[in-house]
C-alpha cells in the first residue's frame, strides 16, 4: 500500500491524453525540497511509472511572490494545511513519469504517457 510497485513501468505504452481511473492508487503530498510548494507523488494508473507533480505557493496575479509583501515587508499568509489538502483533492493530475512515451508531443508540458486522473486516496503530510 505504501508505494510498493506491483506492476513495472510500461515504457512502450503510447502517449494518449485520456482520463483514467485512479481508485487503486494512493498518492502522497509533501513539502517540496525548497519548502515553497507541495509535491504529489504516486504511480501513474496508466503506465505505472512513478510520477511527481509539483505545485507552488503563489499569487496568480503576480507570479509567486507578492510585490506588496516585498514593499512593505509584511509576512505572506500561507494557506492553511486543510485548504491545501482540499485544493490538492480537487486537482486533475497528469502523468509526469518523466519518460517520453512514444508519440509524446514536442511541446508537452507534462512528460509522461498523457494520462490524467482524479485522486481518490491522498495523504498530505503535515495536514490534519
Amino acid at each position: 500500500m505504501t508505494g510498493a510497485r506491483t506492476v513495472s513501468h510500461d515504457f512502450e505504452i503510447v502517449y494518449a491524453e485520456q482520463d483514467v481511473d485512479a481508485a487503486t492508487v494512493s498518492f502522497t503530498g509533501r513539502a517540496s525540497a525548497d519548502g515553497l510548494g507541495v509535491v504529489v507523488t504516486g504511480d501513474c494508473p496508466r503506465c505505472h511509472g512513478s510520477t511527481a507533480s509539483e505545485y507552488r505557493y503563489g499569487l496568480p496575479g503576480t507570479g509567486t511572490k507578492g510585490l506588496w509583501s516585498k514593499l512593505t515587508g509584511t509576512a505572506r499568509t500561507e494557506p492553511d494545511p486543510g485548504s491545501v489538502t482540499e485544493t490538492l483533492r480537487q486537482e486533475t493530475y497528469f502523468c509526469e513519469c518523466g519518460h517520453p512515451h512514444p508519440q509524446l508531443p514536442g511541446n508537452a508540458v507534462f512528460v509522461g504517457c498523457g494520462a490524467s486522473w482524479q485522486v481518490r486516496s491522498l495523504i498530505v503530510e503535515g495536514a490534519p
Binding site: Y55, W68, E78, T87
Partner: peptide, 25 residues
C-alpha cells in the same frame, strides 16, 4: 493590474485553483 493588497493572499497554484481564481477575478 490587480489590487496591491491581494498580493498577500498566497495559494497553492494548481490548475483547478488557478481556474477558480481566474473565474472569480
Amino acid at each position: 493590474h490587480g489590487s496591491p493588497r491581494d498580493s498577500d493572499k498566497q495559494m497553492l497554484i494548481t490548475g483547478h485553483a488557478l481556474r477558480q481564481w481566474t473565474e472569480k477575478e
